Computed example of a mutant assay.
Amino acid sequence: MRQITQKNHRIDILEGLRGLAALVVFLYHWLLGFFPQFSGLWPDFPKEQAWLGRWGFFFINGSGAVVFFFVLSGFVLSRRVLLTYATETIGEAALKRWPRLAFPTCVACLISWVFFATGAYYYPSAALITHSPWLGGFAGAAGLPSQRLLTDAFMQGLWDTFFSGNAYYDSSMWTMHYEFIASFMIFGTCLLLVVYRNLPQWISVFPVLIITLLCSSVSPWYPPFFLGLLIAFLLPERLKVSKVTRIILASLGLYCLGYFNSDGLRIHGYT
């Protein structure tokens, strides 16, 4: 792998893809909450109404979008280090990672606490209208806050959601646990690749694959981060792709985003 000194490693198209993935997640949650019969996740609704397997399912495949976010995160966290060999950036990124993630989670938890404290949540009543098990369970949250203390909400946003995975004030924060833990695994793997940068790429890939396999035994949500790292490691800095290749890759990506099986689509808390 060649040492590259270019300072600007931003890939603008990834920002657009990030926005599209966020829109997919929003549409998916909207579907689960207000049109659960189309999700194909619950046996109480006729299977013929489900959108699973139909054209355009990738537009509401929230789980697939989350996987994309994790791949993108692994890519972004490792790309600069693997291009410049600047190991000091690993320490800087590690120190910033917790505050950068904790600020939005604290805000979300505190806002949710205000809604609980003032009785402004009406999800049980809304679930009776939409017949959504997901909405009735506070958006798939694994439990609800028992004491609903301000300090409990603050500590969940600051600490608990990252180290314990609890997200009962805002169920969408379950991804933060994996983002946080995987970040440091990515940093450590990047350091390993930089130390042994003089080895051929095909040899360096093997320890990454072993680490990925070990992490997959803990949770299936960790491998996407390492896929992003491998892309960052193997992808040349300057890569010219023809229009035909772009169309093929885009079509393949959409197919994977719309993939499903007879057991349903895996999402957090449901299968």
Results as ranks from 00 to 15, higher is better:
residue 3 Q to W: 02
residue 3 Q to R: 12
residue 6 Q to C: 09
residue 6 Q to R: 14
residue 7 K to W: 02
residue 8 N to I: 08
residue 12 D to Y: 11
residue 14 L to N: 05
residue 15 E to Y: 06
residue 20 L to E: 04
residue 23 L to T: 12
residue 29 H to T: 10
residue 30 W to F: 14
residue 32 L to G: 03
residue 37 Q to P: 02
residue 41 L to V: 00
residue 48 E to N: 13
residue 50 A to M: 06
residue 59 F to E: 00
residue 59 F to W: 12
residue 62 G to R: 08
residue 62 G to E: 00
residue 66 V to T: 05
residue 68 F to N: 07
residue 69 F to A: 08
residue 71 V to N: 00
residue 71 V to F: 01
residue 73 S to D: 02
residue 73 S to R: 01
residue 74 G to H: 08
residue 81 V to N: 06
residue 86 A to M: 08
residue 90 I to L: 15
residue 91 G to S: 05
residue 93 A to N: 11
residue 101 L to G: 02
residue 107 V to G: 01
residue 108 A to E: 08
residue 111 I to E: 00
residue 111 I to Q: 03
residue 114 V to N: 00
residue 114 V to W: 12
residue 117 A to P: 03
residue 119 G to H: 07
residue 120 A to F: 09
residue 122 Y to D: 13
residue 122 Y to P: 00
residue 125 S to W: 06
residue 127 A to F: 10
residue 127 A to N: 07
residue 130 T to S: 15
residue 131 H to K: 13
residue 136 G to V: 01
residue 136 G to Q: 05
residue 137 G to S: 13
residue 137 G to W: 01
residue 137 G to I: 02
residue 141 A to G: 12
residue 141 A to C: 07
residue 145 P to S: 09
residue 148 R to A: 12
residue 149 L to H: 11
residue 153 A to W: 11
residue 154 F to N: 08
residue 154 F to I: 08
residue 159 W to C: 06
residue 160 D to E: 11
residue 165 G to Y: 02
residue 166 N to W: 07
residue 168 Y to D: 14
residue 176 M to H: 00
residue 180 F to W: 10
residue 181 I to E: 07
residue 183 S to R: 00
residue 185 M to G: 15
residue 187 F to N: 10
residue 189 T to M: 15
residue 191 L to I: 01
residue 191 L to F: 14
residue 195 V to D: 04
residue 206 F to A: 13
residue 206 F to I: 15
residue 207 P to Y: 12
residue 208 V to T: 13
residue 208 V to S: 11
residue 209 L to M: 13
residue 210 I to C: 12
residue 215 C to P: 00
residue 219 S to R: 03
residue 222 Y to A: 05
residue 223 P to W: 03
residue 232 A to I: 10
residue 233 F to D: 12
residue 235 L to S: 13
residue 236 P to Y: 09
residue 236 P to I: 09
residue 236 P to M: 02
residue 237 E to G: 14
residue 238 R to D: 15
residue 244 V to M: 12
residue 246 R to H: 01
residue 257 L to K: 02
residue 262 S to A: 15
residue 266 R to K: 13
residue 269 G to I: 04
residue 271 T to Q: 11
